[in-house]
């Protein structure tokens, strides 16, 4: 009896806390996501609300996940100017790597940012812009002429700079970008012309 009452009392307190923090936590999560998206492109290059113009992509073969990958579209006066993919690669050296890949409508890469990872400090963590410029090699990069062989690190005969001591990490990020670019080229029209999903993302 005492146990049940105490459990009920704690349950009530938790319910009050959850209820009173709900709105603020949702806002904070959204703000964090928006802040990450806005880093990818100049603020004056688009004028829509990014997180309200999304597409859920179900392509397990291409994105290593059964879950939907989210694509955000940046528009200037209604015309799409960039598409941003929020995806995860499972090939990291130590767990998953979450990244954002932005492409111009002509297929040029606009920018890439690593959002979350647990790669080795001092070696693999140089995929973060905060730690090194490595990820900038993808900025404003034309992709239509790249062959499969080009999508490799230099030491494997490709076109991209490696990270010393973090080959697995660099290959994982490079592979995720390659898959995104290829997906974009294959589904360009659908990505640019489908109306936005109605759902508000969690």
């Amino acid at each position: 009896m005492a146990l049940a009452l105490i459990a009920a009392g704690m349950g009530l307190l938790i319910a009050i806390t959850v209820n009173s923090t709900e709105v603020r936590i949702t806002d904070q999560r959204l703000a964090a996501r928006v802040a990450r998206l806005t880093q990818l492109m100049p603020a004056n290059s688009y004028n829509n609300i990014l997180h309200q113009d999304t597409l859920a992509i179900h392509a397990p073969g291409q994105f290593q996940t059964d879950l939907a990958v989210t694509a955000y579209r940046a528009r200037m006066d209604g015309n799409v100017v960039s598409v941003i993919f929020a995806l995860t690669t499972i090939d990291g050296y130590n767990g998953n790597i979450d990244l954002l890949v932005a492409l111009h409508t002509d297929g040029r890469l606009q920018a890439v940012r690593v959002v979350r990872h647990q790669e080795t400090p001092g070696l693999g963590d140089r995929i973060e812009l905060r730690k090194s410029d490595w990820v900038r090699q993808f900025s404003e990069l034309p992709t239509s002429t790249l062959t499969n062989k080009d999508w490799q690190l230099r030491k494997h005969g490709g076109r991209f700079d490696q990270l010393t001591g973090a080959t697995i990490t660099a290959t994982a990020v490079l592979g995720a970008i390659e898959r995104t670019v290829k997906y974009f080229h294959e589904h360009r029209e659908w990505l640019l012309e489908t109306p936005a999903d109605e759902i508000e993302l969690p």
Partner: peptide, 29 residues
């Protein structure tokens, strides 16, 4: 009571930590 003290401690601790975690996520995101 002696017999229920451990479950009671666990309920209290888990409940408090849940609340602190929610508050941290709201104010120290």
């Amino acid at each position: 009571y002696h017999a229920i003290r451990i479950p009671v401690f666990v309920i209290i601790i888990a409940g408090l930590v849940t609340m602190i975690e929610r508050l941290m996520e709201a104010w120290l995101f």
